[in-house]
Amino acid sequence: MSKEELDCEQSFIENTTRESNGRFVVTIPLKENPNRLGGSYEQALTRILSLERRFQRDPLFKEQYCNFMNEYIALGHMSENTDPEGDTPHCILPHHGVLRETSLSTKLRVVFDASAVTTTGISFNNIQMVGPTVQDDLISILIRMRQHKFVATADAEKMYTSIKVNENQCSLQQVLWRYDPREELKLYKLKTVTYGTASAPYLATRCLKQLGLECSSKVVSEVIQHDFYVDDLITWGSTED
């Protein structure tokens, strides 16, 4: 590992906690002071106004987008920021929708653009550590799988949003949102590991690996640590049971 990857791993070990129900609470690994971030409101405003113009042209896209955001709020993945003046430092992320026609569940996913630069020329992603790769590479998993008669596949549902972010850092991942242009724009804090942030893949896969490390069953531990590629599981056995 590089020094930054080692620092990232150390940050995870020292700063990750678990709630009473076992849910992980992680700290976004930062390599620079977040005070280096500049203003982010104007760009986020421009992007959401552009998004609303697309909503007018494409009602189905709007419906899917609003459903996604409504679920995000209902599940507690984001909540309204009722005291934005008290957040220093902070960052407001633009967002856009990605359509996935082949998806069996969510046809549209909202991606939060943490690479959007602030007025200082620095983005939220610029100050994050990316972290090391902690899972086996896909080719190795597939080659191992093809040696067995019985295989099984699965995926970890809502992997990123199953992991909470340290409450003190939620002001660094805020968004503007409203359901209707006639409503007032509101600020929301994203409270979980977020698609589009540089450290999200590491944090999510590292939490999964931690479950494997703590698992009492050696067989299950090996499956968790070596048969997952991001949130997709490809595993096998010598018998169907």
Rank of each mutant, 00 (worst) to 15 (best):
R206L: 08
S123V: 11
R54I: 02
T197W: 09
E157I: 01
C207D: 05
P201G: 05
Q173P: 06
V220W: 05
D87T: 11
P132K: 08
Y179V: 10
D136N: 14
K209L: 15
E240L: 12
L6P: 07
L187N: 11
H96F: 13
M129E: 04
G196W: 03
Q173N: 03
F55E: 01
T102L: 15
A156T: 05
E240R: 12
W236Q: 10
R36S: 15
V230K: 07
V230Y: 03
K31H: 04
G38F: 10
S221T: 01
E214M: 09
N33K: 14
G38C: 09
V223W: 07
D180C: 06
F61L: 11
Y229C: 13
K191E: 01
S50Y: 03
L37V: 03
L190A: 07
V230D: 04
Y188P: 02
N168T: 13
L108C: 08
Q10V: 15
N70W: 00
T161A: 09
H96R: 13
T197N: 08
V175D: 05
L142A: 05
Q135S: 07
G39E: 12
L51C: 03
E157Q: 09
Q56N: 11
E4S: 13
L51Q: 09
G39N: 12
N21Y: 06
Q225I: 10
Q135I: 03
D180A: 05
V230M: 12
Y65P: 02
R100N: 12
S217G: 02
A198S: 14
V26A: 06
P181E: 01
I13D: 13
F12S: 06
L99A: 13
S11C: 15
N35S: 13
R18T: 09
L49R: 15
E85V: 12
K191G: 06
E184Y: 09
Q174D: 05
D241M: 11
L172M: 07
L203C: 10
V134L: 15
G131C: 12
G97D: 03
D232F: 07
Q225Y: 04
K149D: 06
L176K: 10
F55Y: 02
R23I: 03
Y160I: 02
L37K: 08
S171K: 14
P84L: 04
